[in-house]
């Protein structure tokens, strides 16, 4: 009998979905993967909330309140939580805003930006409220494994999930660590 499939959730917080695109770059190996893995919440499934899972892959850093809620939902539901990509691990490109004052950010976006006329700062509760600074996800919840890269290559995703499905501790092969 085949071993039970690994239940997997993925999400992108303050990221560009580039890690997800890279995941898909494993091309025909995806067929091999779906033999071992089934998806819970993920852009691939359009499931909105995460149920109990074996593995959660989180792309992107934490830049606003909603990111925290999603991240905490993942942490509560995923046995193993993996930080995927430069943004989840260091804040990445979104963290470039960390040396800009938040007030200046708002001014630029809603008042003085190119093409903005009579702009005003929205106060709609539907809009996630931004933090003073963008943070990596390991500063908000406990993270079990890290998959660096911008994005991590498809092989790295495949290898990580294969290791986890086989009950092995995932190891990046020597020379496979890249931050860009």
């Amino acid at each position: 009998m085949a071993p039970p499939k690994l239940r997997l959730a993925t999400c992108s917080l303050a990221g560009c979905f580039g890690c997800h695109m890279s995941f898909l770059d494993m091309d025909e190996k995806l067929f091999e993967l779906v033999e071992r893995v089934e998806f819970d919440r993920s852009p691939f499934t359009d499931i909105k909330h995460c149920g109990p899972c074996d593995v959660g892959l989180v792309e992107g850093g934490v830049c606003n309140a909603e990111n925290v809620h999603v991240l905490q939902e993942f942490r509560r539901n995923c046995r193993v939580l993996v930080a995927v990509g430069a943004c989840a691990i260091t804040g990445g490109i979104p963290a470039l805003r960390n040396n800009v004052d938040l007030w200046d950010c708002f001014q630029e976006v809603y008042h003085y930006g190119v093409g903005v006329e009579r702009g005003q700062i929205p106060n709609d509760p539907e809009l996630p409220l931004p933090f003073d600074k963008v943070h990596p996800i390991y500063e908000v919840v406990r993270i079990d494994y890290f998959l660096p890269g911008c994005p991590p290559p498809a092989e790295a995703f495949f290898r990580l999930l294969s290791d986890l499905a086989a009950g092995r501790r995932p190891e990046l092969p020597a020379g496979a660590i890249r931050y860009d």
């Binding site: 309140a65 925290v68 809620h69 938040l102 007030w103 708002f106 700062i121 929205p122 106060n123 509760p125 539907e126 996630p128 409220l129 931004p130 933090f131 003073d132 600074k133």
Partner: peptide, 19 residues
Amino acid sequence: GALQTARLITGRDDAWAHI
């Protein structure tokens, strides 16, 4: 606490403006 600046800027204090 890290949302406080944004709360001040937007004038929000609703439930979603807190963690």
